[in-house]
Design a protein around this nucleic acid. Structure first.
Lengths: 133, 133
DNA sequence: CTTGATCTTCCAGTCACTGGAACCTCTATC
DNA sequence: GATAGAGGTTCCAGTGACTGGAAGATCAAG
């Protein structure tokens, strides 16, 4: 299986797959012509990576998760710790974004949005701070 | 006022202030010794930038907002359009993160997190996809 | 044999900083 | 005047995770 088929199968761009090889996440074999060949195992890994990335795990987290995924004697606590940490980061980001959204949506609502120069948004940016929870 | 005072006043790192000058957002004058000098106006701009960045506006958005902020004949609709677009992006990010969080928190809850290798998180990454709203 | 699609590598750019090196300037103390 | 330390300057490189594009090899079809 060539790279474009692997891309189609996994939903990842070919460029991204090459990048994953570059950083050592996958190691497809090579044909005599130099083309990458993706077998079952590599395809499986790529799918795993695509899903883990979609869940927001960093490349380094993915590297660790992939190692645990392949290690039949892993402890599930190792996986859970990584996931929990990541979950906390996601929660923190959500909280940040919600604070931003709340502040900004108030400002947007207060702005007439017409031809006049008077603008509560600009005034708000001048004076309002985003209050983190 | 030197850069470290400006940094203290605005809450921005000195490095960041230098960067803002590099990209043309502020233009402090210079002392005979080459040190940057920040007056009222530049300090005001830096504060505005710090707040706008805290609201998640990009540097390019900040550039536009700053121009509008300084333009006494601006139309508030120009500002509102930028803010609304940004607000939509924030909403989209929140939705993405919430989808991630929901998927991931289910997996974390399902995982025993002990010494055994059986791990619903890894299984979940294998099979679950993040469902966007 | 030619065309066009697909593959390869390599380099540069993205965004908004951040770290660090090398060097200059100011202020205070001896 | 020498010196130490704090603070300023520039410039270069790195971050994360790709992404775009150039230049060139290879393949499949007609």
């Amino acid at each position: 299986m060539n790279i474009s088929d692997a891309a189609t199968q996994t939903g990842l761009p070919a460029k991204t797959i090459r990048y994953y090889e570059e950083v050592g996440l996958v190691t497809p074999t090579r044909n005599t012509n130099g083309y990458r060949v993706f077998g079952e195992a590599e395809l499986h890994k790529l799918t795993f990576l695509a899903r883990a990335r979609a869940l927001g795990f960093s490349i380094e987290d993915c590297r660790t998760l992939l190692a645990l995924y392949e290690d039949q004697s892993r402890a599930s606590s190792d996986v859970k710790r990584i996931a929990r940490t990541h979950l906390d980061e996601i929660e923190a980001k959500i909280a940040d974004l919600i604070a931003m959204r709340d502040t900004l949506s108030h400002l947007v609502q207060a702005c007439a949005g017409d031809d006049r120069p008077d603008c509560p948004i600009l005034k708000g940016i001048e004076t309002t701070s985003v209050s983190k929870a």
